[in-house]
Each structure stands twice: as structure tokens, then as C-alpha cells.
Design a protein around this nucleic acid. Sequence first.
DNA 1: CAAATAGTGTCTTTGAGACACTATTGA
DNA 2: TCAATAGTGTCTCAAAGACACTATTTG
Lengths: 248, 248
Amino acid sequence: MQADAWTPPPVLLTVDLVILTLRQSRLCVLLVERGEDPFNGMRALPGGFLNNDREEIVDAARRELHEETGLNVDRVHLEQLAIYGSVDRDPRGRVVSVAHLAIVPDLPEPVAGTDAKAAAWVPAETVLAGEIDMAFDHLQIVTDGIERARSHLEFTALATAFCSEPFTIAELQQVYEAVWGTPLDTRNFYRKVRATTGFVVPDTAGARSTGGRPARLYRAGPNTTLLPPLTRPHATTPDAETTREEPT
Amino acid sequence: MQADAWTPPPVLLTVDLVILTLRQSRLCVLLVERGEDPFNGMRALPGGFLNNDREEIVDAARRELHEETGLNVDRVHLEQLAIYGSVDRDPRGRVVSVAHLAIVPDLPEPVAGTDAKAAAWVPAETVLAGEIDMAFDHLQIVTDGIERARSHLEFTALATAFCSEPFTIAELQQVYEAVWGTPLDTRNFYRKVRATTGFVVPDTAGARSTGGRPARLYRAGPNTTLLPPLTRPHATTPDAETTREEPT
DNA sequence: CAAATAGTGTCTTTGAGACACTATTGA
DNA sequence: TCAATAGTGTCTCAAAGACACTATTTG
């Protein structure tokens, strides 16, 4: 160890948000267009620096989330994702980003950004395919965030965070299908969800009709962990056959 | 956003390490004794500040790991755990810690610390029971790290990181039993491990005897993810304890 | 030989997926 | 009435756990 004159190097801390939602049964992520260098004009995740050195990281994330979505932030799912702190990720200097994953229900069409910069929902598929020019290492962050969501759907009640309450089982299934990108059997899904204790609870209200028999309504249940888990179809063998049911 | 005179507040970045190993079939964590304020004399995780603003975070973690264990760091498991950045966690100011999880095989008795501060392996059980006075929020970090390890044993080949190669299936089982704290059926475990593709591969060497029939030897296989997973016995009691506390 | 540990076979239970079937609405 | 969606019953298959059994070593 060296003399006590040495002091550790300071860094700048930002929060970045992977905000996911379902729009028309497609998984979408909220991206803004950068209005300044570096990466001027490219797409980026919503985020920004800490306001001051007394601001909690999670509060900074909540603040950004509220600014971008206009939502009452207390009710949305927000969790820490990972930290991205590579030396060269930001040309301005040593900027370390604390990435967060946020899940919100479908919002009224315009993103109620109080901010001037253009914000837009972009299909996850488009982003993951690399079709969007992303600033910094934000493509990596989005990729990690989506994978986190996919995994959490298996073991936690995260899917309910995508739904406006009350919701139907069919709506919940659409979440799974959109996030995982796989079709699921309606009937097995229905039984599975109802058999998982504390996942959903019946809503007092009646039913909702969409051209067929009205569906019962539910709300998120008390449990956050799914026992047993709702396992996604892992590609064990390249048996990618979608065995379709015979039309009757 | 405000005028361009405003600059974001800098923070100090540390890396902290939850280093786990098995000693006499017990899960242990490496703790050091602090030799200075704050928290002088209390136990803490190994860790420290970035050396300079060109040092990658993972390199700082590797450096600390090497200093504390003397191991060739290239071969040990090291992953980012979470970030802990609560405003009041360090009385010296705004210090944000990037916690890491490291898994090492059982080491020769003395911890080859090049550092003066006393380092010791402490049973995980003792720490989790709150019997150790821990500095900062390090008890929380250890708790999160152990839970991460428990979870990763199910879905990844992390258990092999606890073993010196070559190892026997029985040794691998001891890892699971120690980390999960549950006894497992030897025979079912044996079949399960061997049925999981790419988990372990037979070693060319012969066998190892411990008073009975000698056991075959294995090495870590090519796969890091376990398909199918090796599920731990979940307590079938519904939730109640799932207060997922976010890292601050 | 017995004691000890390694490794196999096989039964039972459970849960996931496939899919026929019934129920309840709107057009 | 039919088309459409909600919800139930039941079969089959595969994986997990229980556990009797065989195999190979040391003392």
C-alpha cells in the first residue's frame, strides 16, 4: 500500500432503464433519440446522471421512469439489472451505468414524455436483430434486460406487471407468448396458472367479453415466486416442429 | 435539464468480493478484519477502491481476489453480483460498491494473504445467523451472494468451481449438500449428474478410494448451463419470505 | 469374512403437454 | 343457428424421488 496522499479515482454514475411493455401483443422497449454528442441522433435507453450526491440510485431510476412514462412509479416493477462500467464505454470519461429493468402495462399511445427528446416504443425483435443504431453499450444492456425478463417469467410473477388490473388469463398468456416468443397451449396454460398458488387471485368484478364466452378477471396474487415454476420450452432438441392441433 | 454549468456528482467506486469455498464439507466465506475506521475491528468482505480511472471493474475484482487467495485467478469463477450504493452506507461519503461472487476450490489451510489484515474462512451458517459483526452493508451482500450461489447450482455448472479437478461425483454432491443445506440421495444424484449432458466428463486417470469401492474421476464438462436443471428441494410452503430486497 | 463406499435397476408419483370435449357469449 | 373464445377432463410420456440391489475396494 502507498502513502496516505493517494485518493481513489472518482467516477460518474448514471442510471439507465430498460422499460418493457406489451403493445399489440408484441414486446417493446422504450428508446429515446439522443440530442447531443456523443452518439448524437442515435437511439439510447432513457437515463441520466444522479441529480446530486444525496440521491439514492433507485430514486434516480424512479425519477427517470416517471419522466419518460408519466406513470405513478410506486406501482410498477423496477429492479436493478447490472452495472456496466467499461473504461471505454463513454468517450466523455469514466461513466459507470447502473442498468435497471422496468415493466409497465400498455400505456396510452403517446409516450407522455415531459422531455423534449423523442421517445418511442420499439419492438424488442427489431432491437435484438441489431436493426437500430444504439448509443454506448445500450444494445448489450437491452439484450441482458430482455433475457432477465424471459427468465423471471419462469420463476416469478413478473408477467402480472405487464397487465393492467384486472386482467384475464388469456392476457397473461399473451405476455408469456410475446416475451418468450413461443406459442403456448391455452388450456394447459390456464390450468397451470390457476394451479400455481398465489400467482393470481379472482377479481370481484364480472367478466370481459371479446366475441366469445366472457373471461373471468384476475389480479396479481400475493406470491412473487412461482411454485412450481412455469417452465419455458427450452430448446433441448432442435425439434422446432410446431405441432398444430387439428381444426375441428 | 439545467444549464450547462451543472456537472454530475462524482462517486467513489469499490469492488467487494463474496468468496465462497467448501471446507470440511461446510460452505465458508472469506472475511477480513478491518484495521481502520470506519468499522475498525469489525469483519468485512475483501475489496477496495479502483486503483485508477483506467482500471476495469472486473480487473479490480481479479486483483483483490488474487491478493486475498493467492490463486491463479484465470481459473476461478468470478461474476458480478449487484451494486450497493445507498447514500448512507459509508460514513466517509458517497461510496458505491460493485459486489462480486467468486467460487474457489478448497485452499491449503492458511489464506495466503499478502496483506497484513487478518483473513479467515467463516462458515456461511455463522454469518447468515448474524453472529458476526459486519462492517457496512456487507451482511446483506453476503446473504445475496450465497442466495445467488444456491440458485446457480440449479441451473449452471457452478458446483464444479468448488472442486479441485479431478473430482468424484460424491465430492460434487457434497457441494450441493453444503450450499443448499439439504441431504440428497446419493444414487439419484449420481444418475442425474451423469444424465445431464456436458456437466461432467470422465477423467482419464483411474479412481480414488476412501475406504470403499474407488470412485471414478471427472472434470468439468463443456456446458455451463444445466439441461435439465438440477432442482433443489423447494420448501412447498407458499411464499411469505420472498421479500425480494433490492440492492441499494 | 464384514464394513464401507460406488454404482445400477426399477417402481411410484408427479407434472407437462396433447387434445377431445363442454360452456357461454355475440352476430 | 354458427363462430369464437373460455374453461374442463383425461390420456400419455418423461423426469424426480424412494429404495432394493449389485460391485469393488480396505481392514
